[in-house]
Design a protein around this nucleic acid. Structure first.
Lengths: 140, 140
DNA sequence: TCGTTATTGAAAACGATTTTCAGTTAATTA
DNA sequence: TAATTAACTGAAAATCGTTTTCAATAACGA
């Protein structure tokens, strides 16, 4: 997902495109891995030295709400984020347990499963999240 | 999963069956919902008034390691736990977004998907987590 | 019952996240 | 371009959940 496109989306919401936000967007769009807020802060300060950690948190919350960033849930917690590649539609994550690299995929072939679950349990199924954990080619 | 069975498992590990642990186990085995540590503490104090929050954390960590309790990852965070019904083998969760009720299911029909992902991305797939969010019959 | 050892709870420490607030900046208007 | 204004920002403080420390306690075997 390109910076220009992200900027466009901010404007559509009537939000300002500030230097701190650009810095966060840049880190997220450049990195293909999950990053903690602290790590995003550290990297973001390379392009905008005055960037505050507070603003990183605020920007992440904003981007998450806009669907441009996704939380990554690992065994130890869910305190990392990854930039979304294709903001439209349904997708899931394939995460490298060593380097944190995140790949997206959309075909989760779960239609049948969800229909079956719905039928058997009486739940009205609304959403689902699938995370696959593995080791990426470079880390193997 | 019954209290008696949980107690049995503790003994097998050479662990003591203390009143605080009994209280936590009781809460978890009685409730079919995801509960935060604070909520487990509150409920646990009904059967053992002196139960400390610290012990709840410690017991949860212990039970999680033993595979008797599972973390539930929600959009807002991953700070809730649910007792596991069938401790052996692979299973996933169906969670009610309103009351937090948790159902387990094991047939996630993902073999083909994982094989395909592995082939396409070169990742060595090791694990996966599937959470389905919906609305349970009572809450509908 | 006694002794050993794991376990406990309270308080303090800790780390991550959020709030507050006065100052700054991006976007708009003239 | 300069003035205006509301959104945005960073630093400090507050807050919240979780972990550590440590002296006291309780479970279990002898």
């Amino acid at each position: 997902m390109k910076i220009a496109e992200l900027e466009q989306r901010l404007r559509e919401q009537g939000l300002k495109l500030t230097r701190p936000r650009q810095a966060v967007l840049e880190v997220l769009s450049r990195s293909g891995s999950r990053l903690s807020p602290a790590e995003i802060h550290r990297q973001g300060r390379r392009s905008y030295r005055r960037l505050g950690l507070v603003t990183v948190y605020r920007t992440l919350a904003l981007l998450e709400e806009m669907g441009l960033v996704q939380r990554v849930h690992t065994e130890t917690g869910c305190h990392s984020f990854a930039g979304v590649r294709s903001p439209e539609g349904h997708h899931h994550q394939l995460i490298c347990k060593d380097c944190g690299r995140v790949e997206e995929f959309s075909d989760c072939a779960s239609e049948q499963l969800l229909a079956k679950l719905q039928k058997e349990t009486g739940f009205a199924v609304e959403d689902h999240r699938l995370e696959v954990i593995g080791c990426c080619p470079k880390c193997q």
